[in-house]
Amino acid sequence: MTTRLRTLATNRLLLLGGLLAIVFLGVSVAHPGYASAQNIRDLLVQCAPVVIIGCAMTLVILTGEIDVSVGSMMGLLAAGIGILSSPERLGLPAGVVVAAVVAGGILLGGVNGMLVVAGRVPSIIVTLGMMTVLRGVTEILMGGEWITDLPASVRYLGTGEPLGLPLSIWTAMAAVVATVVVARKTPLGLHIYATGGNSTAAAMARVHVGVVRVTVFAIAGLMTAVATLVSVPQQSVIESGIGVGFELLVITAVVVGGTSISGGYGGVAGTVLAALLLANIRPALLYLDLGDRATFWERAIQGAFILAAVLSDRCRWFRRADGKAVTITTGGSP
């Protein structure tokens, strides 16, 4: 059983890796500029926040929960960065801003988790409500204005390049390593998989499923804060629309990456590959010079990728005639 599951997991990674290689090499052959260091850097920078939040979202979905509030949370935390740091507003030093934003993220995630666990409200509803509330709060705080005078110390978080690589890429790599270690090498990781696999069984095995759930939501808040800190200051403008629709991008990456939506099965590696693949769509469309209207098809292609990922599981099912493995990989209804 374990071997079979592992084969399936490697297959998904192989599939994604292969697709990524085909897309990347294909466009590079047609247009050598695509493989330039500058373009690869841009791709990675663009994909970094998806990867960072995707790591946490993978843990949330592994637990059998979902968090659709991360996009709005990002918007609120971005507004927080602007209001706390702008010399015209509070003008606090960068260190304080970072600490406040990180604490804010953990707090917001923790509130989500507490409502799910203590309030017994399904996570889709809690985070759907939060998504709306936080966006509203962001718009009230920003009052329809833009903040354009971020101090240099805060801008450094987005534009700084220690050791020749943008900070967001370093952060994304650190987030991936940390999440893999947590998921595979710590009791928390084991408990996350156990809770998602069968929460009743996990509870009987003395896993504190409530604590596990609150923890993963808090991690989602933390990672959203980190992603916001390293991505938003890349631009000089903060407005209230930051992060709209971002939750769908992140969840898409996790799902295409092969993590089961009903929990218990999947991993971070798939999420990272899927995020890279999705990040390639728009630049590839632009580079291939199909006309400036080609990008209108981006979302259609994104959707097709998810359906293709799902269908690939079905094809494997026909080959193996093993319904159980499929139920696990796609989280099919019983």
Partner: peptide
């Protein structure tokens, strides 16, 4: 997809959420 291929409705409709809107954008530019 949901009844025939027995894929979780959240995943199917997440995909078509992007796909149908994308088709609408693509066809009408």
């Amino acid at each position: 997809f949901i009844a025939g291929a027995r894929v979780h409705p959240l995943i199917v409709t997440l995909a078509t959420l992007a796909a149908y809107r994308g088709l609408a954008e693509g066809i009408s530019l």
